[in-house]
Amino acid sequence: MTALMDLYEAVKSGVDWADNVFVKNIDESEAKTDLTFLLVRDATQELENYGSNTFHTMTYTLQIQIFYASDSDLDYDEVELKLFRYLESKGYLISNVRGRLQDPDTYQDYQTFLVNIEKEV
């Protein structure tokens, strides 16, 4: 299974406060502004730990976006910290939290953050 699909499965099984989790792109027919959902997608990969003229690990950087329902009563800090701790327990490193913004088209608040995971190849 790819690093992206591993993260998707982890998020799907570890998040009970969202209405849906999407991978790679958002299914517009299921992404309504009155729902809270997450989008998981690739960001970058880096070849690392060179020895004997070859690499031995790859670090995957993956992006997660949380789109909050326009009428959400969730405590954003609480659910985000819970998700960060859960992902850390699964071996992911939270590498960047970009801060909440509001989507100019849907007026939904959203948060974007990056996680890293290293795999031997």
Score class of each variant (00 low, 15 high):
1 M>Q: 12
3 A>L: 09
3 A>F: 06
5 M>Y: 13
5 M>E: 12
6 D>H: 07
7 L>V: 01
7 L>H: 00
8 Y>P: 00
9 E>M: 14
10 A>N: 14
10 A>C: 15
10 A>L: 08
10 A>H: 11
11 V>N: 11
14 G>F: 04
14 G>M: 01
16 D>K: 08
17 W>C: 11
19 D>V: 03
20 N>F: 06
21 V>D: 02
22 F>D: 03
23 V>A: 09
24 K>A: 10
25 N>R: 10
26 I>S: 00
28 E>Q: 08
28 E>M: 02
30 E>V: 05
33 T>E: 12
33 T>I: 11
34 D>I: 04
36 T>H: 04
37 F>H: 02
38 L>A: 07
40 V>H: 01
40 V>A: 01
41 R>E: 11
41 R>N: 12
41 R>P: 01
42 D>I: 05
42 D>W: 05
43 A>S: 15
44 T>W: 02
45 Q>D: 15
46 E>L: 06
47 L>I: 04
47 L>Y: 06
48 E>S: 06
49 N>W: 06
49 N>F: 05
49 N>H: 10
51 G>M: 05
51 G>Q: 09
51 G>W: 03
52 S>Y: 06
52 S>C: 00
54 T>R: 13
54 T>E: 14
54 T>A: 13
54 T>W: 07
55 F>V: 08
57 T>Y: 05
58 M>T: 08
58 M>C: 04
58 M>N: 01
62 L>T: 01
63 Q>H: 03
64 I>D: 05
65 Q>T: 12
66 I>Q: 08
68 Y>F: 13
68 Y>Q: 02
70 S>H: 09
70 S>W: 04
71 D>I: 07
71 D>Q: 11
73 D>Y: 06
73 D>N: 12
73 D>V: 14
73 D>H: 10
75 D>E: 14
76 Y>A: 15
77 D>Q: 12
78 E>C: 06
79 V>N: 02
79 V>R: 00
80 E>C: 04
81 L>W: 05
83 L>Q: 03
84 F>C: 02
84 F>T: 01
84 F>M: 02
85 R>K: 11
88 E>P: 00
89 S>N: 14
89 S>R: 08
89 S>K: 10
89 S>Q: 09
91 G>H: 07
94 I>E: 08
94 I>C: 08
95 S>M: 03
95 S>F: 00
95 S>N: 03
96 N>K: 15
97 V>L: 01
98 R>P: 02
99 G>K: 07
101 L>M: 14
104 P>D: 15
105 D>E: 15
106 T>I: 07
106 T>W: 05
106 T>Y: 04
107 Y>K: 09
107 Y>I: 03
109 D>R: 03
110 Y>S: 06
110 Y>P: 04
111 Q>I: 10
111 Q>T: 13
112 T>E: 08
113 F>G: 11
114 L>F: 07
115 V>C: 05
115 V>S: 07
116 N>I: 00
116 N>M: 02
118 E>W: 03
120 E>I: 05
121 V>Y: 07
121 V>P: 00
